[in-house]
């Protein structure tokens, strides 16, 4: 408790540090621009419209999951959601199996899938707030449970196909712009508005800043934290639909690795694990960095494995950067 109040003071200190603080605040965007310029210079293929389209299209699903992840991490207290990738894959197989590739059945089945995501979020939230299970353990457990349920449900070999509309969402274009990118833009704006302009958003930041203050102010902290996990479950379910539409094959492992990539994107984007600081725009910048790194490595003909080294290095760098900021 003492530690947290000390951090509170330091936040106040850093905010008056002027240019340095400004640079720190926008560091992620500067890095994004540098990476973009670097990519354009080293590989002429990077700036081709089709390549940019590919990168953005691939970024959409990760971006959508990361939005929910941002909400969860903003609440602080070690909050994170490891169950997102499991939810993504499960929603994808639910849709493939129950629509049988028909648009007519999409609305009810997709609603069911989204409801499933929200329910998993609700369980996560209740475990964390009511039973005081550490978020890491609660969501890890949920990840394994959902995985197991999926394997029981599909018997290991998922069947079915995706309706044309799902393919349009994940793989189609409106004019020259991928549908998924437009969707990501819309979701980002909605999330930013919720976080910046609504009472709920302000409460999320307050809880992340200092949960005790929030309690003393009469906020129903348990309710709000649970709601952030439900949002994370919902965005994971939505992302599952987009990613499934992009691949077009019913696969038990749609979104494998997205739990860690989404956390990495959020942390790179300046949302700290202590909570209360950051936002979705930084997260989207983090997502774009992850996807651009991947693309550039392939364009430079380096082995795909190199991306992990660079991605890891960027995460560690970003994290150490933000820690230094909060200790000072």
């Amino acid at each position: 408790m003492q530690v947290e109040s000390t951090f509170g003071k330091m936040n106040a200190l850093t905010s008056v540090m002027g240019i340095k603080a400004l640079f720190e605040k926008y560091g992620i965007y500067i890095f994004l621009i540098i990476l973009f310029v670097f990519a354009s210079v080293v590989s002429p293929a990077f700036l081709r419209p089709k390549n940019l389209q590919d990168v953005l299209n691939q970024a959409a699903a990760l971006g959508i999951v990361s939005i929910g992840q941002t909400f969860v991490i903003l609440t602080g207290g070690g909050g994170l959601d490891l169950s997102v990738a499991s939810v993504m894959a499960t929603v994808a197989v639910i849709i493939a199996r129950n629509t049988g590739g028909l648009d007519a059945l999409l609305l009810p089945v997709a609603s069911l899938g989204l409801l499933f995501g929200v329910l998993i979020g609700l369980f996560n939230g209740l475990l964390i707030t009511k039973r005081r299970v550490p978020p890491f353990m609660a969501t890890l457990g949920m990840m394994i449970i959902v995985q197991g349920l999926r394997f029981i449900y599909t018997k290991g070999a998922p069947k079915g196909d995706f309706p044309p509309f799902v393919r349009f969402l994940g793989n189609g274009n409106i004019g020259p712009i991928p549908t998924s990118v437009i969707s990501l833009g819309v979701f980002t704006i909605i999330a930013a508005v919720i976080l910046r302009k609504t009472a709920f958003g302000r409460k999320v930041y307050t809880i992340g800043g200092n949960i005790h203050t929030a309690r003393l102010s009469g906020y129903r902290t348990d309710l709000i934290i649970t709601a952030t996990y439900m949002i994370s479950g919902l965005t994971a379910a939505i992302a599952g639909i987009y990613l499934a539409g992009w691949i077009g094959i019913s696969d038990n492992w749609v979104g494998k690795g997205y739990e860690l990539d989404s956390i990495a994107a959020v942390v790179m984007g300046g949302t700290s694990f202590e909570g209360g600081r950051g936002g979705v725009l930084g997260t989207i910048a983090g997502v774009l960095i992850i996807m651009m790194l991947y693309n550039v490595i392939l364009l430079l003909h380096l082995p795909v494995q190199v991306q992990y080294v660079i991605k890891g290095a960027v995460i560690v760098l970003a994290a150490s950067f933000y820690v230094r900021r909060s200790v000072r």
């Binding site: 990077f46 590919d54 691939q58 992009w246 691949i247 696969d251 749609v254």
Partner: peptide, 16 residues
């Protein structure tokens, strides 16, 4: 051995 990786890698190689 993943369909999504196959698509992602192939798309980048085509650009390249």
């Amino acid at each position: 051995w993943s369909p999504s990786e196959g698509k992602r890698v192939m798309a980048a190689l085509i650009q390249s």
